[in-house]
């Protein structure tokens, strides 16, 4: 079980706002996170990944990753969560293939990911010569390259058209099963993950 119980003060336009989140994620499940803009969805994912430090609380994913009282705070390198950034965070200096090679040495796995993402004919392209949808797929593939047990995705399908998304999601679901990955997806679009997500967490009040 992956359990999170953390607090973090967020600076918002209307002063300081306290983010308190408590949630248990069933291993192998897909959880959708929704909530209004600025509610702290991205901050939540980054706190789990170890990129932002919560003020207090505990994060446990198979082992203790963060415990404010015991002063435990594993760096992101040791947590090795797959992370899909909202801005993709692709490396401008690397080609599609180099992105995946930077993450893993497993050549067969790289080939498979490229095929799933439909990027096998673009391996030598750098991000600036990819379309928005291709860039987003590369960001997803890179996060999967490390075979993460916990995958955190921040609006990962926003740039994909419906047809592309459908096919990709089916393939991704298979991969998630295979990796036995627990997946947490931040999504604006309420229908996007219908029939796919097992659970939901709403952050912030929806008014």
């Amino acid at each position: 079980m992956i359990t999170v119980n953390i607090q973090k003060k967020l600076k918002a336009y209307n002063g300081v706002q306290l983010l308190h989140l408590q949630k248990a994620f069933v291993p192998g499940s897909i959880t959708r996170i929704t909530g209004p803009s600025g509610a702290g969805k991205t901050t939540f994912l980054k706190m789990i990944a170890g990129l932002i430090k919560p003020d207090s609380g505990i994060i446990k994913a198979y082992e203790v990753w963060f415990d404010a009282d015991k002063k435990i705070n594993l760096p992101p390198q040791q947590r090795k969560t797959g992370f899909v950034f909202q801005d993709y965070a692709l490396f401008p200096n690397m080609t599609v293939k180099q992105h995946l090679e930077y993450a893993t040495d497993d050549a067969a796995w790289i080939e498979r990911l490229l095929a799933i993402g439909g990027l096998d004919t673009f391996t030598a392209h750098k991000p600036e010569y990819l379309s928005g949808g291709q860039q987003q797929r590369l960001a997803i593939l890179r996060a999967l390259a490390i075979k993460p047990r916990l995958l955190l995705m921040d609006e990962p399908f926003s740039a994909l058209d419906i047809k592309m998304k459908g096919g990709l999601l089916t393939d991704l679901q298979k991969l998630f099963k295979e990796l036995q990955a627990t997946v947490i997806i931040v999504s604006h679009n309420p229908q996007e993950l219908d029939g796919i997500a097992d659970d939901e967490l709403v952050i912030g009040s929806e008014v």
Binding site: A49, P76, Q77, R79, K80, F91, A103, R142, A143
Partner: peptide, 14 residues
Amino acid sequence: PLSLSQASYTLGKS
């Protein structure tokens, strides 16, 4: 962008 280093860290890179 800060996310470049963050992405690299989540891939386990120092």
